[in-house]
Structures are given as structure tokens and as C-alpha cells.
């Protein structure tokens, strides 16, 4: 059973966003499906993105998976630790495996995402 923290919001393509910090990552369910993450292509600091834009790539041994931004805004921080240790996405997907932080400007976008209960339903 995958872990789904209550305080995050979720996209149907398995990204999470923390509405407090703007941190974005992929879910425990997603990392479990991908397994063995070996490379993360990070977004550019300062990039302006729209919700739903392809913004990063997570590569496992077997395949490359596009990551879509759950919110619109400016990329204000990227997780450089993933360059040396991409497997953080596997070991700590909701913590040290975060990918980037976004300064999200539209609260309505976050409300349109799934809450934890809906996401649990989505992956059931």
C-alpha cells in the first residue's frame, strides 16, 4: 500500500505539491511503479511554467517519464541533491526526494488538484 500524506495536493499524473512550501515531487506510488530512479532532469531556476507543462524528466533503468507541473508560477528552488543521488526519489519521495519549488500564484489551481482521499481512490 502506497503512502499518501494528507497535507499535499495531487495531479492525476502522480505529482504532488505542498501548498505551504510550493515543493513538488512524485508520489510514493509513482516511484514504486518506476523503481530504480537513475537520473533526474531538473527544471531551470527562474523558469516560468504553466500548470500541466512538462517540466522535468525522471529516468528509471527502464524508461524516461515526463513530470508535469501541478501549478503555474516561477521555479524558485531546485533540488540539486538529486544530481548526485537520484534514488532519493525512491527512498524519500515526499521528503528529500522533492524536485523543485514553485512560487504558485493561483490558489484556484491548487484547489482543482486532488486531495489525499481522492488520490488514494485514484491509485486504488
Amino acid at each position: 500500500m502506497s503512502y499518501v500524506p494528507d497535507h499535499l495536493h495531487y495531479r492525476d499524473s502522480h505529482e504532488w505539491i505542498d501548498p505551504q512550501t510550493g515543493a513538488v515531487g512524485i508520489t510514493d506510488h509513482a516511484q514504486n511503479e518506476l523503481t530504480d530512479v537513475v537520473f533526474v532532469e531538473l527544471p531551470k531556476l527562474g523558469a516560468l511554467v504553466n500548470a500541466g507543462d512538462q517540466i522535468a524528466v525522471v529516468e528509471s533503468v527502464k524508461a524516461a517519464s515526463d513530470i508535469y507541473s501541478p501549478a503555474s508560477g516561477e521555479v524558485i528552488e531546485i533540488n540539486d541533491d538529486l544530481a548526485g543521488e537520484p534514488a532519493l526519489i525512491n527512498t524519500d519521495p515526499f521528503g528529500r526526494g522533492w524536485i523543485y519549488k514553485i512560487k504558485a500564484g493561483h490558489a484556484a489551481e491548487l484547489d482543482a488538484l486532488m486531495d489525499a482521499a481522492a488520490y488514494r481512490q485514484h491509485i486504488a
Binding site: V38, F39, E41, V57, E59, V61, A64, A83
Partner: peptide, 10 residues
Amino acid sequence: RMTAPSPPPR
């Protein structure tokens, strides 16, 4: 072989 950090070649 790749000689610097890179995504896996496919």
C-alpha cells in the same frame, strides 16, 4: 559509454 553525468542513453 557516457563520459560525464547524463540521462541513460536509449
